[in-house]
Write a protein that binds this DNA or RNA. Structure first.
Length: 273
DNA sequence: CGGTGGACCTGCTGGC
DNA sequence: TGCCAGCAGGTCCACC
């Protein structure tokens, strides 16, 4: 589910309600998500105060006093919400933090593709999950020249390139699909056959789509909500993703679905070249 | 260098 | 009604 816009929306919704709060108790209900949960370091957060929230790629960063950061990744089906302490334990609730003020921060993740771990705030960039991450597309704002430079000397389809987190982070299957449609570029086009003008259009499309999705509260297909349980609205603005057989909003041609590297891709055969 | 296919896991949908 | 196949927003790995 969650790509950059969803994590950014989650961060913004939680930040004002978490900053300054103290964690009173940590509960762990599962041995592992995508990786084993480190009980000791998670439990060590009890008694400590949340300082601020951040985001890197699709990781939510909860900075805790004394130099620790709680890192949360939602995988495909994760949901992180704040709820009154008395709320019953739900199915697939794997981890929760009771806070002063009577609320609990709860992580649910049916498929368990997500992650939760504690890392040193100073050493975050050196952590194995972060070490190989590429550029953030929104800060600073991605440019066509930057995309061209990242693609220099490479081959392969532009959609795989956009989704390669070692080069550029935050763009997953939905937003790569949407950005290529908006830029009028076929997902299979080789990056070796994209010129300056197309790179510029693509950079603007990526930035435009991500910013608009954030404004609309993210895309909710099945699972995503912000920290208050509020669903996003951007699914209503998707021009290509999930619309095979429906008319292109630009030219009226019938949109198609293809499979690329095992992922569904949707495109317009007429206006994406 | 790059692509494909599979693995991880549960839940939902659509077809029969 | 039930069963089964296929599919899902992410990552990581082995293999060609």
């Amino acid at each position: 589910m969650p790509e950059l816009p969803e994590i950014e929306v989650l961060k913004r919704s939680l930040e004002p309600r978490l900053a300054g709060r103290r964690i009173l108790e940590v509960r762990i209900h599962a041995p592992a998500l995508r990786e084993p949960l480190d009980r000791r370091s998670l439990m060590s957060l009890a008694g400590r105060r949340v300082e601020r929230l951040g985001r890197r790629s699709k990781y939510l960063l909860v900075e805790i006093e004394q130099g620790a950061t709680l890192v949360i990744h939602l995988g495909m089906s994760g949901r992180l919400t704040l709820a009154p302490v008395a709320t019953e334990l739900e199915a697939h609730e794997h981890l929760s933090f009771r806070l002063d003020g009577g609320e609990r921060l709860r992580l649910r993740d049916p498929r368990r593709f997500g992650l939760a771990f504690v890392a040193s705030t100073d050493g975050l960039e050196a952590d194995r999950h972060f070490r190989h991450l590429g550029a953030e597309p929104l800060s600073p704002v991605l440019t066509g020249g930057q995309l061209a430079a990242l693609a220099h000397g490479r081959r392969g389809p532009v959609k795989s390139f956009l989704m390669d987190g070692r080069l550029l982070v935050g763009v997953g299957n939905i937003y790569a699909t949407e950005a290529l449609h908006r830029a009028g570029i076929h997902p299979s086009r080789s990056v070796a056959r994209i010129g300056a003008e197309r790179w510029q259009r693509l950079a603007e499309a990526v930035v435009g789509i991500l910013e608009r999705a954030i404004e609309e509260g993210g895309t909710t297909l099945n699972d995503f909500t912000d920290g208050a349980g509020q669903e996003g609205d951007f699914q209503g603005s998707l021009a290509a993703y999930g619309r095979a057989g429906e008319p292109c909003l630009t030219c009226g041609s019938t949109l198609r679905r293809m499979v690329q590297s095992g992922r569904s891709t949707f495109y317009c055969p007429r206006c994406q070249r």
